[in-house]
Design a protein around this nucleic acid. Structure first.
Length: 278
DNA sequence: AGTGCAACCCGAACGC
DNA sequence: TGCGTTCGGGTTGCAC
């Protein structure tokens, strides 16, 4: 999941977890617990009340009354699903958290890449898992000016830069492809070669594809589910990612490896040289 | 600084 | 149908 999916998980779980207390937890795969050691992690969850849910980039933050925050990163296939009654764990369930009132939270991740942390809330800005994250693309700090300055001093290809979480926090492979198509930019264009007009288009496109993704409750290509185990709808609106033809000009979408990632773009609307014709 | 690659894991898709 | 190969919604670390 990328930013829109994590935001959807946050919203769907916030409704279910508001004011509830964690009464215990069982770890089935200790590799999923990044910090602290599994025993302390479980002990630290007990009797903590949920204060609220936040999101930072692709991380979900569950603030607890114990002045600590449960931090979740889903990587490729992670899910966090609320069950109103105790439920038998689905395959690949690595952690079950019990809630007062009989509910449960199941962390499920077939690929075992996802991780959880229990971290002092006040220290999250310092040395925690969020320490190196860049700007939030849907908040005020993500300005056109910020993009202009940062891209202007990098010679690398634009797409891998969009995926750099220390620059912009939350874009992943799907929404990076979508934003570049919406902006009419070739994914391999050097960042410092973007014109002011292109930077403006890219800035607007990033905000737009993320907002649209949130509006459609995220993209379910295969694994993604929200906090109520419901699939998203944004896959029906994708422009280039894993699509056969460009919705603008009808040209066949091209697929290429850029920065080690499968990249989809329209050879007609996203030319290496100009783009839209500024 | 930029780029490529292996590693972490597993299931699904693909090729024959 | 069956089997081996490739690939991937992500991130990190390391070598060149």
């Amino acid at each position: 999941p990328e930013l829109p999916e994590v935001e959807t998980i946050r919203r769907t779980l916030a409704v279910k977890l508001a004011g509830r207390t964690l009464t215990g937890a069982t770890v089935f795969y200790s590799g999923a617990i990044a910090h602290p050691a599994p025993e302390q992690f479980v002990a630290g969850l007990r009797d903590a009340r949920v204060q609220g849910l936040r999101r930072r980039g692709k991380y979900l933050l569950i603030d607890l009354s114990s002045a600590r925050t449960l931090v979740v990163h889903f990587r490729m296939t992670g899910r966090l699903v609320f069950h109103p009654r105790p439920a038998s764990p689905a395959p690949h369930t690595h952690l079950v958290i019990d809630l007062d009132g009989g509910g449960q939270l199941h962390f499920v991740d077939s690929r075992k890449f996802g991780r959880l942390w229990l971290w002092p809330t006040a220290a999250l800005g310092g040395d925690g898992p969020l320490a190196r994250l860049g700007r939030e693309p849907l908040e005020d700090g993500f300005t056109r000016e910020f993009l202009r300055v940062e891209l202007g001093r990098r010679r690398g290809k634009i797409k891998p830069l969009l995926l750099d979480q220390t620059l912009i926090a939350g874009l992943g492979n799907i929404y990076a492809d979508e934003a570049l198509h919406l902006a009419g930019l070739h994914p391999e264009k050097p960042a410092c070669d973007l014109s002011p007009a292109e930077i403006g288009r890219l800035h607007r496109a990033i905000g737009r594809v993320l907002q649209d993704g949130i509006e459609h409750n995220g993209t379910t290509l295969r694994d993604y589910r929200d906090g109520t185990d419901t699939a998203g709808r944004h896959q029906e609106y994708l422009r280039v990612h894993r699509r056969p033809a460009c919705p603008v000009c009808g040209a066949a979408i091209r697929r290429k490896r850029v920065g080690g990632r499968g990249t989809h773009y329209c050879p007609c609307c996203q030319k290496e040289e100009s783009g839209h014709g500024d």
